[in-house]
Design a protein around this nucleic acid. Structure first.
Length: 737
DNA sequence: ACACTTGGCGAA
DNA sequence: TCGCCAAGTGTG
């Protein structure tokens, strides 16, 4: 090969005449790479292709604009164009926007849109049968039945026909051999039925009907708008936004319903089915690979009209999306905190804006930022005033733990215990809520005071008595509970401090030994499947007293539940998180909302040391508006999100001392009023989880060269992308509208 | 992201 | 001097 010709496809070609296209490859690089298009290959922007990168092959998307220019001699050919609909222009713009906003290399965002590799080729055709007109050599009753069924036409498979006729497969086989049937190839049947907007129109209350009409208007406008719909749990938000879904379907467009942790909300699929006559397409992380492919493909081809999915469903290749609903919009599960950092609720709004269609955010306890957007008029607001039909709101009271303390060694106050007694005595269910897994959140040695700490991340190890282990809830580290203190060697002097759900269960069993007690905790053995079964068992009344963590706050319906006791409402109020009050309010409102859904009179008792705290006041009085107003004012005062400017930077480097050195330089360069914190790789995620920082920076030690310049520039001009440095905005409600 | 190369350090 | 592993580099 001479230096100025290119050995492409075995022919020498003048590089000047090789056609090349930009291809977005799934690598953390600044832009698309250029590839040669072999003669006879047809590609267009959006085509999904296989290209070589170094020694491996990757899936890429043909892009619109070229990246950095490259020496034509380096061009390598596209190896394959997948036989699937090209990634739509809307989706490509969305990918580019998300990349810029989250400061993630575009290739890594693009990768999320083509993550069902086998779906890129058409689904294999199914072998079907048609009648040839030939009659069987001997007519038997079985053969006759088969023939009769086959008359009515299309789409029989060998097995399906045999089964429908009630004969064995060999009957059909023999008939085929005799030439009665021809085999034809049929397209595979759609994995999901077509939802019918008129299947079961619900009976709505006047309030709900007005809200539904309001949403229908928003959908009918056929343009970008955002509606925030709120109302207490049980007020019928789902029924109302289903009407927006129906309207969109009637207009021939597809719908995406985002749900947090869909794996656990089977009841949602049932509700959808009873309204629309069929289940929606499902999309979440533990979907079987085969189903994943089907859903991806059929969403792209338009045979799936509605997808209910977790946050990653935002990147599905809808053919003609016309509405996104974000249910439980306040839920933190919408934040993806690895690789590409994004909040699916915000990106859903962006997706809608790019597509020019409406978005609906629904929650009984909206996030403060959505509240702000509604108040500022950027979002339309629909409020559902009360519960529907006979369902009464629980009457809520605080229990002042200072005046009404539990017995020594216990965590349940006499007031709460006697209320549990009364409730289960009537054959109803009581839920005790405590957002702490395990037995005790801290273990120490009574002799020397040694506290068990995680070797990786400096948080306390949580005792799990069932498993006999000490676990780190932050990084997953676990070790057996030792018999002797590792510090002073004393035997049997370890003491558990504070309650976890296991310990509350122990206390409950002491008081109510004859009652059926169950713990519902996300880390119980048996995983998601078992948990789903247990939730169902509880709903069917197979337990009297339920002790649950956070997950019981999430949308499950327990018809017999008439008492909710919050064991310690103050958890999480004093952890330095600027959103602590908001989170606590949401959690308490959601968990107390579990009671009384089917009309039985119900109660909520909230144990707290701070009955005068604004959160407790708001919960007990039901005055959410006042609480939000206060929260917003507080944030304005403190300059915290969503109103603040850059508050802090976390540097997480492989090498802590490198990070410190960078930070020293940065502090010198930083404009006044902006603080910078440096945390090592282990501490940074913990601080982020606690929400103390608005900005994060993950710096990979080996690529830190540009860090100094990058950060200085960012502090002065706002975020930009550079190298492999990644920055995430926590919340900034104005910047994406 | 991932495969490959480089360079620093401990054992031979 | 070798061999190993962490750090660094390039991919079209």
């Amino acid at each position: 090969m001479t230096s100025d010709s290119l050995d492409l496809f075995g022919k020498r070609i003048d590089p000047a005449v090789v056609r090349s296209v930009p291809v977005m490859v799934p690598l953390p690089v600044a832009g698309p790479y250029s590839y040669a298009v072999p003669e006879g290959m047809a590609v267009m922007p959006g085509s999904v292709v296989q290209v070589p990168v170094g020694p491996r092959k990757v899936i890429g998307i043909v892009w619109d604009e070229a990246g950095d220019a490259v020496d034509p001699k380096k061009l390598r050919p596209i190896e394959h164009v997948f036989d699937c609909p090209p990634v739509a222009e809307e989706m490509r713009r969305f990918i580019a926007w998300v990349s810029a906003y989250t400061l993630t290399p575009p290739g890594l965002v693009a990768r999320m849109a083509v993550r069902a590799p086998a779906a890129l080729e058409p689904e294999p055709m199914i072998e079907g049968l048609t009648l040839t007109g030939t009659v069987p050599e001997r007519m038997t009753p079985a053969r006759k039945r088969v023939l009769e069924l086959a008359q009515d036409g299309a789409g029989w498979t060998r097995l399906g026909l045999a089964r429908a006729a009630g004969v064995s497969a060999s009957v059909v086989e023999t008939m085929m051999k005799q030439g009665v049937f021809d085999t034809v190839f049929l397209p595979p049947p759609p994995a999901f039925g077509t939802p019918d907007p008129d299947y079961a129109r619900p009976a709505l209350s006047p309030d709900q009907d007005a809200a539904a009409e309001d949403l229908r208007v928003a959908v009918a406008a056929d343009s970008f708008n955002v509606t925030l719909i709120d109302g207490v749990t049980g007020s019928g938000k789902t029924e109302v936004y289903f009407e927006a879904v129906a309207e969109t379907l009637a207009r021939g467009k597809q719908v995406l319903i985002l749900l947090p942790e869909i794996a656990l909300t089977a009841s949602f699929l049932d509700r959808f089915e009873s309204r629309f006559g069929t289940r929606p397409g499902e999309w979440h992380s533990d979907l079987a690979p085969r189903m994943r492919e089907k859903v991806w493909r059929q969403t792209a081809e338009g045979s799936i009209r509605v997808v209910a999915g977790a946050r990653s469903a935002l990147f599905l290749p809808f053919e003609e999306l016309g509405l996104i609903v974000v249910d439980e919009e306040h839920d933190t599960a919408y934040k993806q905190e690895d690789r590409v950092f994004y909040n699916a609720r915000d990106m859903a709004v962006v997706r809608a804006r790019i597509g020019g269609f409406p978005a609906v955010l629904a929650s009984a306890t909206p996030s403060v930022e959505s509240q702000v957007n509604a108040l500022a008029g950027r979002y339309r607001r629909i409020h559902l005033p009360g519960r529907f039909a006979e369902a009464a709101l629980p009457s809520l009271k605080t229990v002042d733990l200072r005046r009404d303390p539990p017995k020594r060694g216990g965590f349940l106050s006499p007031t709460l215990l006697s209320e549990i007694d009364r409730t289960v005595g009537r054959g109803e269910q009581a839920l005790l809520f405590l957002n702490r897994r395990g037995y005790a959140p801290l273990t120490l040695c009574r002799v020397c005071g040694h506290r068990f700490q995680c070797p990786n991340c400096s948080s306390w190890l949580v005792e799990h008595r069932f498993r006999g282990r000490l676990m780190c809830h932050h990084c997953g580290h676990g070790e057996p509970v030792p018999e002797a203190c590792p510090e002073c060697g004393t035997l049997d002097h370890l003491v558990a401090c504070g309650p976890g759900v296991e310990r509350i269960a122990e206390e409950v069993e002491q008081h109510f030994p004859e009652k059926r007690t169950i713990i519902l905790s996300s880390d119980m053995a048996g995983g998601v499947k078992r948990l789903r079964l247990e939730l169902e068992a509880v709903a069917n009344g197979e337990a009297d007293i339920i002790i649950g963590t956070q997950l019981v706050a999430k949308g499950h319906n327990f018809p017999l539940m008439t008492l909710v006791g919050v064991v310690d409402a103050d958890i999480g109020l004093a952890n330095g998180d600027p959103r602590a009050a908001e989170r606590t309010f949401q959690l308490l409102a959601q968990v107390t909302g579990r009671a009384g859904r089917t009309g039985l009179a119900s109660k909520g008792l909230i144990q707290t040391y701070q009955p005068a705290h604004p959160v407790m006041q708001a919960i007990v009085s039901g005055d959410a508006e006042a609480f939000y107003d206060r929260e917003i004012t507080e944030r304005e005062k403190s300059g915290l999100p969503p109103f603040g400017r850059l508050a802090a930077v976390i540097i997480s480097a492989d090498n802590r001392s490198d990070a410190e050195a960078h930070a020293r330089g940065l502090r010198a360069a930083s404009p006044a009023g902006r603080s910078i914190s440096v945390l090592g790789p282990a501490e940074a995620p913990l601080a982020l989880v606690r929400g103390r920082y608005r900005f994060r920076l993950l710096v990979h030690g080996s690529r830190a060269d540009d860090l100094q310049t990058f950060l200085r520039e960012m502090l002065e001009n706002g975020p930009r992308q550079r190298g492999s440095v990644r920055v995430q905005l926590d919340i900034d409600p104005q910047s994406f509208l």
